[in-house]
Write a protein that binds this DNA or RNA. Structure first.
Length: 949
DNA sequence: TGGCGCTCCTA
DNA sequence: GTAGGAGCGCCAA
């Protein structure tokens, strides 16, 4: 950096609002009931800027009395801004007080906005040779950017970005920062009540700006525009010029830049401390003291007066220059071989006594591990730098084996040192005899696997336990602790802040806090385990837990870490093709509609189709009062209107492009070059898995165009091939077996086409004479049964009328009488017991089964029918997965299991192993569970997922 | 910036 | 009629 002097001008209200909204979900209320969110948010940002940048000159600018000039120009200007929230009103006097105590000048000018004050000051400072940084998130300021004036913007996820001329040009697609005024004038700004040109949003504004360069030039050439846009803009020329004026920041405010006055001075630490204590800002106070520690010796005196523990532990030698609030993880210098007790009680819950200790490196760690190895059952919890286990690094591990007590082992940031430490723990994690307890162990296992540690021995996962005990509830630790232990753990947000704005990494949290948080989690998890252990036995789900969910956890961890290879180039070319077609459709649709609009907006689309084009007399509406434009409604109209056909195709292609073709390549993990989905083992109430980030269980297959996406999923290299194995009609087989419906069982035993067989019986024709339509209707009823049919639903799904549908269902039940009685037995069972269960005893509780509300009750009854079927199918494939996994491990195969899609498994097969694997997989899947109906598995292999099908 | 509604993809 | 996840538009806090 040059020795040019640097001036920082802070936009007070913008940062206050930002701070306030950052805490909107759980506002900071102190013991006196004052909402301090806004003050805290603002002070955090201010200290952050000072700490990072150490400015020579600094001032904070406020608005006062709104802009008289602007209000005169446009009466609606800022008129219908919402009432300022109470917390912000309270905040301002406090902030002014603090700023005065910090000796930071406050700039306000009656009748001017902070924008104008900052604009004027920065131009003045520029003339005097300063570099000015405008601290604000507000994009309006971009118009002021020059060679010596920059925006200093807090960004999503923490940190700041500096916008110079180049950045502004790029962001706004302009040639000169001054054009930002034209841009804002065209687009408008609802929060500032700048009206903008009607129908012009961000995209159009950029387009117009690129073409015309300025508002004036655009308005002078409106004859070149066409269609609706031409009309609208021509009618709004005055509004356009007005908007531009409103967006212009004034540079002639009567304020004076005074270099001396703006110099960043030593704060009056005592005064600031007093205010912070009054507000109960402990963390902020210690942060403040650290920031100014070197410059003012009174900081140390003050520190001792502070009652808070973390402050008394603030290392007095730590210089701010050492980095952004970094705390050495091993700050127990001089006695590093001793176990250091950090805190012995929580500030918030005095009712709970506990002893949480952090372990220093060296001898203390050795002694700790010796002790650890003597335990028979230990709860542990890893703390990492992020939530994605593939990129996250260990920050520490908490251990607990006695309620109320526990230890925290911090990990060094250096990779080699971290590996060295984890090696010391290897005997523990790989011990077959020590039981490991955790909440969501799949995560910890994946993290540890990256350090080349395979967790062995018995496992107890409290999240999985609770999933079996009560699948309909949520299973995160905070909820469980509150429900079962009547205890509220420290929230992660308290530690690292809300996600997004300035969220810290666990590594930035002081060791004492890490210890409290991490060990508390381990302690709570241990207590939950004791609780759930009993309940598992009572619910008779112990076997399901021990034999299915726990073993499956390791299987899933491996599948997720493995990931699947994606052909990015292929998707890119697919994207281009789609883009082409979408653009063509767009042109056609606009032509047919007579104007341009956002086809992706159901609202706008509905207005065009039904208000403007009046395609239907009485259009259907959704419950929110919009016109319904869903696929089934539109396809009904498609034969009469060309535009509908185009819209439907547009939607299909746009969806395909945005959800799959464009999204998937961005989900490829850089370090592995593969996509790693995350299987959720505890969300589906029926026992199924779900998949996300990305969801690989909903990759298109039904349409020709859509299924192309599957070609992008490929084997790891030429030595491998993809194998897909899927259960044929597993749910129908299950219902046939459970209901003991002989007719259906026999059809399966004879390998008949089940839908044709059903049609033949229901319509009373020989199976070879079944028509396509008959088969299709039979198929719909077959599926309907699984979902809990109604005549209404069936008639909606087919061309049949309500009464025809009812007749079909009646005949169906007459053909399969046992099926009918099975269904009523399930409902009766649910009424009597309050739950239904799968073949393995997985329960789903149905609290609404006896509801007096018929709609609610019917829904529960459908669940009573469907849950055991869907759930049993889930049970069966889970067994198959575990068995296959074990065989693959035992046989040391190179083949890996990659994906599960409810009734399908996908493998990356080493070609020489293909035949063996095929029969192994088929064998394990078909024999995973014995039913009276044979299970049948179809296999396919190929160079991509589509070919494998 | 977050949540909700709508739509659409899967088994 | 069952079970999910995700992208987009839109509006509010």
């Amino acid at each position: 950096m040059s020795d040019q002097k640097r001036l920082f001008l802070v936009d007070a209200y913008a940062l206050i609002f930002r701070g306030y909204y950052a805490f909107i979900k759980n506002p900071r209320i102190n013991s006196k009931g004052v909402d301090t969110s806004a003050i805290m948010g603002f002070m955090n940002s201010l200290l952050d800027v000072i700490k990072r940048e150490r400015p020579d000159h600094l001032a904070v600018c406020f608005d006062k009395g709104g802009s008289a000039d602007r209000v005169e120009m446009f009466e609606a200007y800022k008129a219908n801004r919402d009432e300022t929230p109470e917390a912000i009103k309270v905040a301002v006097p406090y902030i002014e007080q603090i700023l005065r105590a910090m000796h930071i000048p406050i700039m306000v000018k009656e009748g001017f906005e902070a924008d104008d004050v900052i604009g004027t000051l920065s131009k003045q400072a520029e003339k005097e040779g300063y570099k000015t940084f405008m601290v604000t998130p507000d994009k309006d300021f971009a118009q002021l950017v020059s060679d010596n004036i920059f925006m200093y913007r807090p960004v999503f996820g923490g940190g700041y970005e500096t916008w110079g001329i180049e950045e502004v040009k790029k962001k706004f697609e302009v040639d000169d920062p001054l054009q930002v005024i034209d841009f804002l004038g065209m687009m408008g700004d609802s929060s500032d009540n700048i009206p903008g040109l009607p129908g012009v949003g961000e995209k159009t504004a950029k387009k117009l700006l690129a073409e015309y360069g300025s508002m004036e030039n655009l308005l002078a050439n409106t004859h070149e525009l066409k269609g609706k846009m031409k009309e609208k803009i021509e009618a709004s020329k005055e509004l356009g010029m007005l908007s531009k004026k409103l967006a212009t920041i004034m540079l002639d405010v009567p304020v004076e830049f005074d270099a001396k006055d703006f110099e960043l001075d030593h704060p009056d630490i005592q005064k600031v401390t007093k205010i912070f204590q009054e507000l109960e800002f402990r963390q902020l106070l210690s942060n403040f003291q650290k920031t100014f520690a070197v410059e003012d010796s009174s900081a140390e005196t003050d520190t001792e007066e502070t009652p808070s523990k973390e402050n008394s532990k603030t290392p007095k030698t730590s210089k701010p220059s050492a980095g952004a609030g970094q705390f050495s993880l091993f700050d127990a210098q001089g006695n590093e071989d001793v176990i250091v007790s950090t805190q012995s009680s929580r500030n918030t819950s005095e009712t709970t006594s506990h002893l949480y200790q952090s372990i220093a490196p060296g001898l203390a760690t050795k002694l700790f591990i010796q002790n650890l190895m003597k335990q028979s059952s230990v709860c542990f919890d890893t703390e990492t730098t992020g939530i994605d286990p593939i990129t996250a690094e260990l920050v520490g591990i908490a251990f607990s084996w006695e309620v109320g007590k526990g230890f925290y082992l911090p990990f060094p940031e250096n990779k080699d040192d971290a590996q060295e430490l984890i090696e010391q723990l290897r005997p523990f994690f790989e011990s077959e005899t020590i039981e490991k307890i955790g909440q969501n162990l799949k995560y910890d296992i994946k993290v540890l696997r990256k350090y080349n540690i395979k967790v062995k021995g018995k496992l107890f996962d409290t999240m999985l336990a609770h999933y079996l005990i009560n699948p309909d509830m949520r299973h995160n630790m905070d909820v469980l602790a509150e429900t079962y232990l009547n205890y509220t753990p420290i929230s992660i947000e308290e530690l690292i802040g809300k996600k997004g704005k300035n969220q810290l990494s666990m590594r930035d949290v002081p060791l004492e806090k890490q210890t409290e948080y991490a060990v508390e989690d381990a302690d709570v998890t241990l207590q939950l385990k004791e609780h759930f252990e009993k309940e598992l036995g009572e619910a008779n789900t112990q076997k399901l837990f021990d034999d299915i969910e726990i073993p499956l956890l390791r299987v899933l961890a491996d599948m997720e870490l493995e990931g699947i290879k994606l052909d990015k180039e292929f998707l890119n070319s697919l994207s281009e093709e789609l883009d082409n077609d979408i653009k063509n459709l767009e042109t056609n649709i606009y032509k047919e509609a007579g104007e341009e609009f956002n086809i992706a907006s159901p609202k706008q689309l509905g207005d065009i189709l039904f208000d403007k084009l009046k395609l239907v007399d009485k259009p259907k509406k959704t419950k929110t009062g919009q016109y319904a434009t869903s696929e089934d409604i539109l396809s009904y109209l498609a034969k009469d209107h060309e535009i509908i056909k185009h819209i439907l195709e547009y939607r299909t292609l746009a969806k395909l492009k945005s959800t799959y073709v464009d999204a998937l390549p961005t989900q490829v993990e850089a370090s592995t070059g593969r996509v790693h989905t995350d299987y959720m083992q505890t969300v589906a109430a029926t026992g199924r898995l779900s998949s996300n980030n990305p969801n690989l269980q909903n990759i298109p297959i039904r349409t020709e165009r859509g299924r192309q996406v599957r070609k992008a999923f490929i084997p790891r290299n030429d030595d491998y091939t993809l194998l897909s194995a899927d259960y044929s009609q597993i749910e129908l087989r299950i219902i046939a077996a459970l209901s003991k419906e002989e007719t259906m069982i026999n059809a399966f035993k004879h390998g008949e086409d089940i839908h044709a067989s059903t049609a033949s019986k229901v319509f009373n024709v020989p199976i070879e004479n079944v028509t396509r339509e008959q088969r299709s209707n039979a198929k719909t009823v077959n599926f309907g049964i699984i979902y809990g049919v109604s005549a209404f639903g069936l008639s909606n799904q087919t061309d049949l009328s309500r009464s025809e549908a009812k007749e079909l269902i009646d005949t169906y039940y007459a053909t399969y009488p046992k099926l009918k009685s099975y269904i009523s037995e399930q409902v009766d069972f649910a009424r009597d017991h309050g739950y239904v269960q799968t073949v393995l005893g997985r329960r789903r509780y149905l609290k609404d089964i006896n509801s007096r509300n018929a709609v609610v009750r019917s829904a529960a009854e459908r669940n009573a029918v469907n849950a055991p079927i869907q759930g049993s199918a889930a049970d069966i494939i889970k067994i198959a997965m575990i068995n296959i996994y074990n065989k693959l491990e035992a046989g040391n195969y190179k083949t890996k299991m990659l994906l599960q899609v409810h009734d399908e498994l996908v493998f990356d097969v080493y070609k020489p192993e293909l035949d063996t694997i095929k029969s192994l997989v088929k064998m394990e899947m078909e024999n995973a569970y014995k039913l009276e109906v044979p299970l049948d598995v179809d296999l396919g292999s190929g160079n991509n997922w589509l070919e494998a099908h």
